[in-house]
Write a protein that binds this DNA or RNA. Structure first.
Length: 811
DNA sequence: GTACACACATTTTTT
DNA sequence: ATGTGTGTAC
């Protein structure tokens, strides 16, 4: 937060804390200083909730109301957790150490790793991401021949996840299900089987991390009491997005402590309490922890994955004696942006009326633009980004949002061509690439030998000639001998396979054993800090994985090698940042840290992300793209109860991320599934008062004009004639399909990947560009394949082009 | 067992 | 349009 005027209210707390309370408005002050069993802070977008939360924690620490170890703060993403830790640290310094500030998932992993032994798991369990569990479910669906009854892996996975979020298991579900329906029966069988397989593999899926922790607390009250005694102040951010399991977890943690004197050690002998006396706490029974939740029901956008808005709307009922504080003043955006956002969200019925206001003044109008195609739209965004950059705004202060990940492609293509530095958050994740998953499977096979999935994955990677037949032979041998799959690999000669295969299996077994010795040395010995990096290199080298890629002539394999190099670098970074980090620690981090978290705002790049990812972030300039029907609101949401309203909230989240500049854009045609179809402006656009939007090119303009040139030349003609206010007439009138226009505006941009090789250009040269016409080179920067030409076009203005691929010729 | 060809579905959002 | 999965030929 930027420094605030020093208005210290008379009611401020201890003097030492004046700086923590400085500049807060009365509601914020209340939210920071209120003490009691439960507090709900209803925080509108941009109302300074993070600041309130961090100051509240800092005040607790500074006043000695709590030790750091007694505070548990839950955020939605790891990134948010990191930020909060940093900000609390800035306020109270070292006193912040020892707090748990983490996501629901990482907090639960910490608890589960300590207590796994209580219920049949071990400390080194694997965490299955959705891809892993999908693979397992897929196998089970096949085994149960359930596809014949219309059960697809995706649908089964979705249902299991939903049930787990409701804290149901296969057994409880079976009780209510209609067992006469064969599909139902099959589903329950698969569900039960899935759970058995997870247990056998010593693994938890994402939903289990929460659900099993709740189960642990309920089944072992003395374990729960340990944590109830420890955490005296629990704070939860983004409370509107919690699901039932998370709600139950919070409920369990805030229950009064029943048991006798505190035990400083958890059941498995690990120390839980710091060796310090707890201020203000006696022995024996204690009241439940104090709970603070922060949320905004207008920003609830995860109902699709089980978030239950009732958790927040019924908070006062669930936690009697709760205090509610409302934060309505927005410190982020200009009034124009807020007015648009308010107007949109006001169309949701069934919500408590809440109007954000700002004292920042009206600010710039919202800029609207309608492209002929998604590429045309992307070109507008790129041009606008460059214009803002030239006006002094850093790239890192700009962000482009879209509804679906697939929309990032067109933007990416144009950004590359325009040489705009960008970074895509989320999307196709690094850790989802096949070669990275392979490398991870090697590591998991070492860390958790019970994990058969991981072993099966690497069995024939690289190719060793081990196919279905051999795999089954190993599995059968393991079963006959009553040993694990991993152990079976140590007896290649007894598998009944040919000598070549025996050698291959023996080799794999040996590599894994060798790596185990490095990363998990025999008891007592501490592995070196770089053991993970060393072990990984050894695995990839000696297994022949690297060699097979190096030998390959598939050009993609070169990229895979690079990715793996990067992955090894990740393990080195890990060793540097966590000198005591173990293999299991590393795998935990990889499983729980999404790309959106670690792709930190590298200064100097524009951020591209979905509107969901954008939650909790803010930028000076925001571009919301693809503001079309069927996209936002998304087509699929129409069928779901509450779907359209959730979409409106999502759009609202997008709008309220912007501080100074907001751009809304759409395309008249959009290619999906390789087919081009006509798009219509989103209904949400009409909900924004017309006078707030300055249309550079309104949907009406695009339809009525229809020139013969592409937009790059055509639309440069500023304003003037086509000034029809799009929102002024009924939509249908202007939305005649553009089939004719489409013929004139094919997707030029995607046409071909060209390669200008080493086209030499120097300032002063004249060139011709397919879209922009003729121009003059002003400068050339960059090296090799990334050489960039700075061109001033006669008609289209200033542009930056990647020389290697730009559709240009030297004149 | 592997390599290639063809068919097919995919595009909602994420810890 | 692109990636995955299945089938067929070697």
């Amino acid at each position: 937060m930027t420094e605030a005027p020093l208005i210290v209210p008379a009611s401020a707390g201890p003097q030492a804390s004046d700086d923590l309370l400085a500049g807060l408005n009365p509601q914020q002050l209340d939210a920071v200083t209120h003490r009691g069993p439960a507090l709900l802070i209803v925080a509108g977008a941009g109302s300074g909730k993070t600041s309130v939360l961090t100051r509240r924690i800092a005040l607790l620490l500074r006043n000695r109301e709590a030790w750091p170890s007694q505070i548990l703060a839950i955020t939605f993403t790891n990134k948010a957790a990191g930020e909060m830790r940093e900000r609390v640290g800035a306020l109270v310094g070292d006193a912040a150490r020892g707090m748990w500030i983490s996501t629901f998932h990482s907090a639960c992993v910490r608890i589960l790793r300590r207590e796994a032994g209580q219920f049949g798991f071990t400390q080194n369990f694997t965490i299955y991401d959705s891809g892993d569990s999908r693979a397992l479910i897929k196998r089970l669906v096949k085994e149960h021949e359930a596809d014949a009854y219309g059960l697809t892996p995706a649908s089964v996975q979705g249902r299991i996840s939903k049930l787990k979020n409701e804290l149901q298991d296969a057994e409880s579900y079976a009780r209510d299900a209609n067992m006469n329906d064969p599909a139902e029966r099959l589903f329950t069988e698969i569900f039960a089987d899935y759970q058995r397989q997870l247990q056998k593999a010593n693994a938890f899926d994402f939903d289990d991390l929460i659900g099993q922790t709740v189960y642990l607390f309920r089944a072992f009250p003395h374990v729960a009491d340990t944590y109830r005694r420890r955490f005296r102040h629990i704070l939860v951010d983004e409370y509107q997005d919690t699901n039932h399991a998370q709600y139950a977890l919070i409920h369990e943690l805030t229950r009064p402590v029943q048991g006798e004197a505190p035990e400083p050690y958890a059941s498995n002998g690990m120390m839980i309490f710091e060796p310090e006396t707890t201020p203000g706490s006696g022995t024996g029974a204690e009241a439940g922890a104090s709970l603070t939740v922060v949320g905004d029901s207008d920003q609830s956008i995860y109902a699709f994955r089980g978030a239950d808005i009732r958790n927040i709307s019924e908070f006062e009922r669930d936690f009697p004696g709760a205090k509610v504080v409302l934060l309505e003043q927005n410190y982020r955006s200009t009034q124009n942006i807020l007015s648009a956002a308010n107007a949109v969200i006001g169309n949701n019925f069934d919500r408590k009326d809440k109007k954000l206001w700002s004292d920042k003044g009206d600010g710039e109008k919202i800029v609207g633009f309608t492209g002929y195609s998604q590429h045309d739209e992307a070109q507008f965004v790129a041009d606008e980004v460059e214009a803002l950059r030239r006006a002094g705004m850093p790239y890192s202060e700009m962000a482009v949002f879209y509804r679906t990940n697939s929309q990032s492609r067109a933007l990416e293509e144009i950004f590359i061509r325009a040489a705009v530095p960008y970074k895509i958050m989320g999307g196709t994740k690094f850790y989802e690439r096949a070669e990275i998953k392979d490398a991870l499977a090697y590591l998991v096979s070492v860390a958790n030998p019970s994990d058969e999935m991981a072993l099966r994955r690497i069995l024939n990677k690289p190719r060793r000639g081990i196919g279905d037949v051999t795999e089954t032979a190993i599995a059968r041998f393991a079963e006959e001998q009553g040993i694990t799959f991993r152990e079976a690999l140590s007896h290649p000669s007894q598998l009944g396979v040919g000598p070549k295969l025996q050698a291959a299996i023996g080799q794999l077994d040996q590599v894994l054993t060798e790596a185990t010795a490095i990363m998990l040395p025999a008891s007592g010995e501490v592995p070196s800090a770089t053991s993970v990096a060393e072990g990984l290199s050894l695995l990839l080298e000696k297994s022949g994985y690297f060699d097979s890629l190096r030998r390959s002539r598939d050009p993609q394999d070169e990229a895979r090698l690079e990715n793996l190099d990067e992955f090894v670098a990740v393990t080195r970074d890990f060793a540097r940042n966590n000198p005591d980090g173990t293999l299991v620690d590393f795998l935990t981090e990889v499983a729980l840290v999404s790309d959106a978290d670690d792709l930190d705002d590298e200064s100097g790049t524009v951020s591209l992300m979905t509107m969901h990812t954008a939650k909790g972030l803010e930028y000076d300039a925001v571009f919301v793209t693809g503001v079309e029907e069927d996209l936002i609101p998304h087509r699929i949401s129409a069928g779901e109860p509450g779907g359209p309203q959730e979409e409106r909230r999502l759009f609202y989240v997008g709008l309220t991320r912007a501080r100074k500049r907001l751009h809304l854009s759409l395309a008249m045609t959009r290619a999906q599934f390789g087919e081009v179809s006509v798009a219509m402006p989103s209904r949400f656009l009409q909900e924004i008062p017309a006078e707030l939007i300055d249309w550079r090119q309104s949907p009406g303009d695009v339809n009525s004009r229809g020139g013969t040139q592409s937009r790059a030349l055509n639309a440069r003609r500023q304003g003037g004639g086509g000034r029809d206010r799009f929102a002024a007439q009924p939509l249908e009138k202007r939305l005649t399909p553009l089939s004719t226009a489409m013929d004139r505006f094919p997707n030029k941009v995607t046409a071909k990947v060209r390669d200008n090789g080493d086209l030499e250009l120097v300032p002063g040269d004249r060139i011709r560009h397919d879209d922009f016409g003729e121009g003059r080179i002003e400068a050339v920067t960059g090296e090799g394949a990334k050489r960039i030409a700075h061109v001033r076009f006669d008609a289209a203005g200033q542009k930056k082009l990647l020389i290697k691929i730009a559709p240009i010729v030297k004149l």
